[in-house]
Design a protein around this nucleic acid. Structure first.
Lengths: 218, 218
DNA sequence: ATTGATTTAAAACAAATGTTTAATACACTT
DNA sequence: AAGTGTATTAAACATTTGTTTTAAATCAAT
């Protein structure tokens, strides 16, 4: 199938444009011009603009998931080290890089300004990560908090990481370039890890039904 | 001047619509219909759509700033209590409420998806809050961290609060309605406060003049 | 090479939308 | 009451943009 050439050119051109401008602001003409194909090609190959968007998002997920899987830990990894890896994984995904791959940006856009494709993306991509993170929290604590507190602590952790993406605009305007350059993945990972670890160590389980000890202990 | 009537009707109608749909998706026709004025009135009174948007944002800021000033503390307030109040202030502003006032939503939209009016909004509205928060952090610690760490700890705190707004879509899809209902301002304030306080207490300052990382591997 | 399907190309179409115009109504002054 | 400046209205205009059409070109198989 040599259709590959044109169809793929559209897909590859649409990715960065959708990622940068979003579904509404990106125009079919713009995409076709970037792909150097005729205006009608989008409708020919994808039916309409929406379907092209879905196809682009699907491609993004494929490219991305094989690149940044949820961390899997080797036997013997300490809970603290697991937590560190989870945080690093989050920060690495979220931190806006110089040449940020468009799949990341597109998926982020979809998550924070969902159209209608977001459901699947979240349940199959973020939810598992979140659950995995909570398990690590259990590990660090040595016991499992009640659901409510457990969830909100998870939110506190990802909140610390997310803010560096969601508030990009704010950061850009609140800090000098020099300050911003210190926001490296390594440094942020370390700081968030330290902050979180200290918080977990110091937490007194607010609601104490008999906190059941879980996993390997015992 | 009975023009007041029409001009104000436009402004008041534009507020909620811009807040909900953003500048691009909100249409002049829609606004005029809601205001029950003629289509041409927007251009007659404001020149063009952009100017109307700016006027709306200006109104939003006026309405809002007199309602939620930065907390000022009475003499004798403990550092911990100050921190609690700052966090509460943030959470209250950020938590999506059932009947959320449109000025909040509009300003949030502008902050996270800035058009070009955002600069002023951030420097005059958020930056002072952030500085104030950092001062409270100094108080709680009893000393002042180096700029870098101090800033990033501030980010960790506001990140915990911001996430409940920026990730609304994610939250809606990751948690059941019952779980979400436990995300009350009071409870979140308490949790974030506890988490943050524990983190601050447990932090080992890397504030020595030389930036020596103290990551003690275990 | 012929034929039939597929792909590309240019133009046209239709709907949405910001803006302008030109006529009319209104209120207030003289 | 006439006049004048302001406010309102309906219609038109111009542009953008997603989509469709129709014809030409290309390719693969017989």
């Amino acid at each position: 199938m040599q259709s590959d050439s044109t169809r793929d050119r559209i897909l590859n051109a649409a990715g960065p444009i959708f990622a940068q401008k979003g579904f509404k602001k990106a125009t079919v003409r713009e995409i076709c011009q970037a792909a150097e194909v005729n205006l009608a090609s989008v409708n020919y190959y994808f039916g309409d603009k929406s379907s092209l968007y879905r196809a682009t998002l699907e491609l993004a997920r494929q490219l991305r998931s094989q690149e940044h899987p949820i961390p899997s830990f080797e036997y013997g990894t300490s809970p603290e080290e697991k937590l560190n890896q989870m945080i690093r994984s989050l920060v690495m995904r979220l931190l806006p890089q110089k040449s940020e791959p468009w799949p990341v940006r597109l998926m982020m856009r979809e998550v924070f300004n969902p159209t209608e494709v977001a459901d699947d993306l979240i349940t199959s991509y973020f939810r598992p990560f979140f659950d995995s993170l909570l398990t690590v929290v259990d590990d660090v604590l040595g016991y499992r908090l009640n659901e409510n507190e457990r969830t909100q602590i998870g939110m506190s952790i990802i909140g610390q990481c997310l803010v560096y993406r969601t508030s990009q605009a704010m950061i850009q305007r609140m800090f000098t370039e020099a300050e911003r350059e210190s926001f490296t993945a390594d440094q942020l990972t370390q700081r968030i890890h330290e902050f979180t670890l200290a918080a977990l160590k110091g937490i007194t389980p607010a609601t104490l039904p008999e906190t059941v000890s879980i996993n390997q202990k015992n």
